[in-house]
Design a protein around this nucleic acid. Sequence first.
DNA 1: ACGGTGCATGCTAAG
DNA 2: TTAGCATGCACCGTT
Length: 832
Amino acid sequence: MGSKNCMNEACRGTTSSEWKKGWSLKSGGFATLCYSCGSAYENSLFCETFHSEESGWRDCRICGKRIHCGCIASRYLHEYLDLGGVGCINCAKRLEIHSVQSIQIPGDIPNGTFATNGIRDVRPVVENQIDDDKFSTERLLQLTKAIGSNDVSSALEQLKPEESMFKTRQSSKRLLNLAQQCSSSALFKTDNNRPKEGVKDIYESLPQPSLNFSLTTPLGSSSSGLPFPGAIVEGSEQKGSFQQGQRTRHVLPKPPKPSPTAVSETNKGTSSQTRVARPPAEGRGRNQLLPRYWPKITDQELQQLSGDLKSTIVPLFEKILSASDAGRIGRLVLPKACAEAYFPPINQSEGIPIRIQDIKGKEWTFQFRFWPNNNSRMYVLEGVTPCIQNMQVQAGDTVTFSRIDPGGQLVIGCRKATNNIDVQEAQTPSIVNGDSPGETSFSGVTDNPLSNGGRTSDDSLQRHMPISEKKKARNIKNKRLLMPSDDAMELRITWEEAQELLRPSPTAEPNIVMVEDHEFEEFEEPPIFGKRTIFTSRASGEQEQLAQCDSCSKWRRLPVHALLSAKWTCSENIWDSKRSSCAAPEDINPRDLESFISIYKDSKKRKISDNKVPREGEPSGLDALATAAVLGDNISDIAESSVGATTRHPRHRPGCTCIVCIQPPSGKGKHEPMCKCNVCLTVRRRFKTLMMRKKKRQSEREAELAQGKDKASVKIGLEREDIAGHALLNMSHHTDNETNQNGNQTDLEETNKGQLDLNCDPHREDDILAEAAGMSLTTLMNAATLPLDMYLGQNGVPVTGPCLISRESEENAADEGFTSGRVEQENNREGG
DNA sequence: ACGGTGCATGCTAAG
DNA sequence: TTAGCATGCACCGTT
């Protein structure tokens, strides 16, 4: 500390309360700045503060802002424009985005022809070298445009003199490394390195790189084509480039739309913390890598990682784990291009064992192999389970592959998906490449030695970037469902739990319907999620519920009828003024509380086991819903597993004696054919009522019926999906105009279909189910005019109780709030 | 019966 | 249109 000198020439201070990082140095690391200079640098005020009298100031050609050109401290703050002049980084990037999108490099350049040029890349990424950026896509493209040529490779040739200059700066160690490089470079040709003066000038006039990172990193390939010496190579199938013929592609994958790299570059001073997706290190066919696999790591992380491992780390690629990857099978599918670029060539399907080290230095051995697949190969790493578990990563998290140079040792790391974007990136290449999470933390193995310092101001820019809704939708539809983490957290509850949490909308006024002396509350508004509470009974027999304050976590006794919103605090305890503050002590004996919770958990567990709730790995919660939606007919199978809970009306409480609550939990063996029990009789009666109501509604909506007929062709699967979604979330109204327009919701609304909530809008469902079952509305009308028994008989259904009614009638009956029929039927089916 | 292995299938995105 | 890849599933070996 004491020996530090501020590297600001105008300061040269030797003492500072805090030393800050400045610009990146060619020798690696960053300039050391005292607190005030560092602050100025961080705030992009360095040049304004210290260089205002110096030469080199120009104006942004677009916005007019003053730019200090040719200064290392401001090199990230401007760009040279294609149209001449300079532009501040924001303006330049806006222009650049378009050019990056539009320019692609024609043709494929044979790998072998670049061997001698590969050495240019032997620079550790962590060095943050200016020169690196010369080879960034942006630079490349800009250069191409600057010289008015579409031939990028020829344009790049012009850069070679610069390269040479750069090479001289490389350490002997790296040169040694370089000598081993022979892998491809799509950007340079050896047979044409004649400098073109003009171009050189142009190049030299190019702005200093915006990236802190090298976009072209050390070659991992040895002369044998191996990316790392430690790898075991078998057979003679060692090609300098690929193991298999490769498709001709563009030199670099088409950059994502809003060139995130560009965006992330825009902030000097914070760029070291920017998660930039960079084209990976050289390797056989690195140019084949899709942006989604480009390693995204901040240079800060990289530096730290390098420090931890005391080596130079070259990020190779990364992959967001799929369910399969993170599953028990222990197979991690490697992107083909990555496998071929950075792993040893293999020609036997069995592959080779490969040693990969984690950042703690622990070495893991995987089997690197491939499967023949569609005349191609599918590369996998086998035996990754221990490592995956060790890193505590799961589907949606990212594993990173890097290489230690020199030596070529592969390193595996991980990064937890901590926000939506990170997860979506896997599916949305258009937002990779720096348009990436500022909050994801890079993790090494097990524990994360690298914390992402941060959010950068470009995060805000990134947030503004439009993500195509269409794309989003497609991602969601993707069977590789990667739900945004936050949402996943929010929905990581079971179907049953979701039902338990449903509460009537606070603004909803229920209509009271009496059925067999049982009161039903009907709501015209869908329910909302409420707070989870525990219902208990006092010794006196008085029932109550316990709720936990979201603020102080104290439990409060509340009346059994209390309805709490999802977020509830003591201050909302209107029932007990003494306990309406978080300061008030908990009035529940800890032992009692523990007991209550224990009982609650036990009962839940029992329910789960009784109902064969999906085991780990099987769909639960929303997954179950989704599955149910897909399964369609089998939705009831799933729903049945939660009969006890899902038939509970939001306002049904322990002790409720309504017809719903008095049902047996499973219904097994309770209802015989021709059962005359209260439930069965009511089911029959209510079903008939339903039919009549349908008729009435039908007459009211006759005009719409024609259109409705069209809708009848809608496939049941889709409809049921809709239903399922509605059932769980129930947060939005159906958009179905046909059935909802008059808002007539006087039917008792327990949707047995899938044990949905009582407040689900059944109207649509009625029709849907009926239609799907081949029952037109007319049929229903007719049916409604018949005595129930006759109706059932006509439909080939034995006239029994609710136990054996047909599916469609049963489902309609279910609309009325009864489940026993369903239950019984399912039981019978099980028994059969 | 269970679990692992290898292949086939189908979806998606890239070209 | 096609390659890549996630995942389902049949087959096979082991318990």
